[in-house]
Amino acid sequence: MTNNPATGVLDRDGLSALIEVLAAQGRTVIGPTVRDGAIVLAEIGSADDLPFGWGSEVEAGRYRLVPRADGAVFAHTAGPQSWKTFLHPQREKLWSAERTPDGALSVTEDDPEQTSYAFLGVRPCDLRAITIQDRVLAGGRYPDRGYRERRTGAFLIAAECTEPGATCFCVSMGGGPAVDGSGFDLALTEVLDQGGHRFLVRVGSEAGRDALDGVPHAPADAETEYAARAAVDAARDRMGRAMPPVDLRTLMGESLEADRWDDVAARCLTCGNCTMVCPTCFCTTTEEVTDLTGDHAERWLRWDSCFDVAFSHLHGGPVRASARSRYRQWLTHKLSTWYEQFGSSGCVGCGRCVTWCPVGIDITEEAAALHDERAGRLRHEKQKETQR
């Protein structure tokens, strides 16, 4: 946890009141809820919609919803969605065109009314992912107008992690289970002990303070603060996975011809699941659709993936035709060349790509294998040099 002072304690009724206050402000409140055998992100109307008493068990290629006896609401790992689903939607209409009776063409830019979101339960890894997406889609010379408008009005309620999953590795990516710095309006830490079930609240913005002032809450007490800090600190030491403690940028740059790429290519289905569940992957393409008369056409923006063989198609065919080259592109961009474009890694250690890969490919295992191969190659070269 950060040194930001705690400003209050909410119980379940206070949490529900907070949802009601945000809805009364005209916001669409999105939070975790149980649906179709998973904890997903969807619109919620009250605290009753939250997954109290539900958790998740995850492993590479495996996700299971499990009941919890303690009634915790935020003791689950990342599900198949991230907040990217709402800030950077899978499909978005850009414009439509109509042919008028006199043969002229009328083009209308799509300008839908933007939803004012309130996101409840944003994990620290996802908070970092939103910050990365801000640089990618809201910054630079050509910002995404739709993303920037949706992001500008979003109210973020973070939830610190006290229950990391078997596929989590945020600490090794420079993050952690605590909400550090800024970028949130309110931050919650769930506490369950002899003092009851409650949420320590920290304020991160004036909008957050106004929202908290509008709901019943108790002053922050030392016992709750200590319990919250201890739970988050314990979570930091229970990460299920870790990246190898090396310079990943250098590792990727010196492993372009590694044999390991053939090994992973033999298992990879190039299905693109990892890019769909990743909270930072942002690639899109555009497509035009028309009606049968040819008098009406639309252009849509939709998600794309570097695992799609057509993603790198040029006039002579795809640049990356093999599974080896497509997986290598994804991993090296995520862990290395992302720095050159946006100044940080593109991975926040949420573990979704590991959990939701249908064949259980593990990004941390692949990075470790590349490191071992590189180390072996360097030792061999050193031995040859010594023998000369």
Rank of each mutant, 00 (worst) to 15 (best):
L378W: 02
H371S: 12
C350P: 04
G204F: 10
T100I: 01
E365K: 12
C278E: 01
Q90S: 14
L331W: 00
C357Q: 10
V136G: 11
R260P: 00
R99N: 01
V107G: 03
F342Q: 13
S205V: 08
R148Q: 14
G153I: 05
I361L: 15
R151L: 05
G204S: 09
V122C: 03
A178E: 15
A265R: 07
A222T: 13
L269A: 11
I130M: 15
Q341N: 14
R267T: 12
D193G: 03
Y147G: 08
D221C: 08
A166N: 15
E298W: 07
R198H: 06
G45F: 07
A265M: 09
A72Y: 07
W356N: 02
G55Y: 03
V40D: 05
A265V: 10
G204Q: 06
V277S: 08
I157E: 09
F311C: 10
P124S: 10
C350H: 09
L41S: 01
M239H: 06
D48K: 13
C168V: 07
A297E: 11
R68T: 11
D233A: 15
A375F: 07
C170E: 06
L65K: 08
V34E: 01
S345C: 12
S106K: 12
A23D: 12
L335Y: 14
E98M: 12
A266M: 09
R229Q: 14
G45W: 05
D262L: 02
Q194N: 13
D308C: 09
G165C: 07
T275H: 06
G174W: 08
T100Y: 00
E20N: 12
D262Y: 05
D262W: 02
F199S: 03
D213F: 00
A266Q: 11
S325G: 10
H217N: 09
F282L: 04
M239D: 02
L251M: 02
V21T: 13
P80Q: 09
A211D: 11
R62H: 15
D210G: 07
Y147W: 09
A97E: 15
C125V: 04
E298H: 09
L251K: 01
R238V: 01
P143H: 07
H313D: 10
S205A: 07
D237A: 15
H217M: 08
H76G: 05
